[in-house]
């Protein structure tokens, strides 16, 4: 790969792009959970479970981004 004199693997740029979405997603999930816990501290345990579920789904996209480098190598 050679764009404007930069050499290297385009997969690196691809992963950088793929990490944006899950990053925003995980941030929103965690931030909203903190908001909800501040409003209702007695529900903290159940909110945390739901938060980890949401994070697991959003984070999977980031990991698929990692995997594509190995798949299409």
């Amino acid at each position: 790969m050679d764009i404007a004199g930069i050499t290297g693997n385009i997969a690196t740029v691809g992963y950088g792009l793929a990490a944006i979405g899950p990053g925003i997603g995980v941030g929103i999930v965690a931030g909203k959970t903190v908001e909800a816990m501040a409003r209702q501290p007695e529900l903290a345990g159940r909110l945390q479970t739901t938060m980890f579920l949401g994070i697991a789904f959003a984070e999977l996209l980031g990991f698929i981004g990692v995997a594509t480098f190995f798949i299409f190598q």
């Binding site: 697991a56 984070e59 999977l60 990991f63 698929i64 990692v66 995997a67």
Partner: peptide, 12 residues
């Protein structure tokens, strides 16, 4: 997705 999530987390 269950399998891939675990695999890639540990691999990375």
């Amino acid at each position: 997705s269950l399998a891939l999530r675990l695999l890639l987390n540990m691999m990375v």
